[in-house]
Amino acid sequence: MNVSQYIRRSRTARVSAALLTSAALAALAACGGRQAGGAHPSAPTTSFTEQGVTVTLTVSDWHASTGTLSAVFTPEREGFHLYSTDLPADGVEGVGRPTAMAVSGAVRADGRLAASAEVRSITVPGVEAPVPVYPDGPVTTTLPVRADGDGEATVLLGYASCSTRDGCTIPVSDHPVHLRVTADGATFSPQ
């Protein structure tokens, strides 16, 4: 199998997994929206793909106008990593862009953005300082949020993916995803 075939099969496997997850969530909703053990209904989810990364957003644990906004950043190609949420906005000596999620409108952050992966440092030719990145592959970030009442809200996402072998994709800055907030919770507006 050559590299192109491997990349296509890897992408197909990730897409298939995402479709199975979506189908499972739809089946769960059709059965009354409850998980085994009487858990709460399935969480609102949406996704988009831009510059070689699929981002899947979920609103969960919504109680009394607070909840958690999660974003899973999944590079489409093997060997690509994302940069740390703590990376400066302009990168390290201009290299990289932070993995970022911010909210505005009827929702505000109620804590700091956290990532599920350990940060490691890499060296980049021509850059003296180490560059903080996550291991290759998907990274999940979570942001506690609080609603300021009913209305519209916007989630702004930013990231860049790179490979030590294949270079970098164009950074994404402030990609908007819209939410509708009511007393019952938050749902994603159609893209």
Rank of each mutant, 00 (worst) to 15 (best):
Y159G: 05
S65D: 15
H178R: 15
F73H: 11
L82P: 10
A43K: 05
T154R: 11
A26V: 14
T12Y: 13
V155W: 02
A26T: 15
R77F: 13
G185M: 07
P75S: 05
L157P: 00
P98W: 02
D148P: 03
S65E: 13
L82E: 01
A114E: 12
R34L: 15
P98M: 06
A26W: 06
G126D: 05
G149E: 12
Y159M: 05
S22E: 12
N2Y: 06
C31H: 08
R77E: 13
P88G: 10
P125Y: 01
P176L: 03
S65V: 05
R146L: 10
G37M: 09
L157Q: 04
G52S: 05
G91K: 01
P138S: 14
Y83P: 04
P125A: 11
R180V: 13
T141M: 06
T21W: 10
I7K: 10
G111Q: 08
V139H: 03
Q51T: 11
R14H: 09
P130R: 01
A160G: 10
L20P: 02
T66P: 05
T142E: 13
T85P: 01
T164E: 13
M1A: 14
A89Y: 07
P132I: 05
L113R: 01
S10C: 09
I7G: 02
N2P: 07
A109E: 09
P135K: 04
A147T: 11
T54W: 00
A114C: 08
A153Y: 02
A71E: 09
H178E: 15
T45Y: 01
M101N: 03
T49Y: 01
G79Y: 05
D86L: 11
A129V: 05
G52L: 08
T99D: 11
T12A: 14
P98R: 09
E152N: 12
S47H: 04
T49R: 06
T21E: 14
G167R: 01
A106C: 11
A106P: 00
G105C: 10
V15I: 15
V133W: 10
S16M: 10
S42N: 11
G37E: 11
S161D: 13
A100D: 08
V55R: 03
T164M: 11
A18F: 06
V55P: 08
G32L: 06
E50H: 01
A160W: 02
S60D: 13
T187S: 10
R112Y: 12
E152S: 15
A186H: 04
V53L: 03
A43M: 08
A147S: 15
G33D: 03
P41D: 08
G111C: 10
A23I: 11
V55I: 09
A71G: 08
P44E: 12
S104Y: 00
L156P: 03
H178K: 05
G52Q: 04
S70E: 06
V172G: 02
T74P: 00
V72T: 10
T66G: 08
G158T: 07
A114N: 09
T182W: 00
I7C: 07
D61Y: 00
T58E: 11
A109H: 03
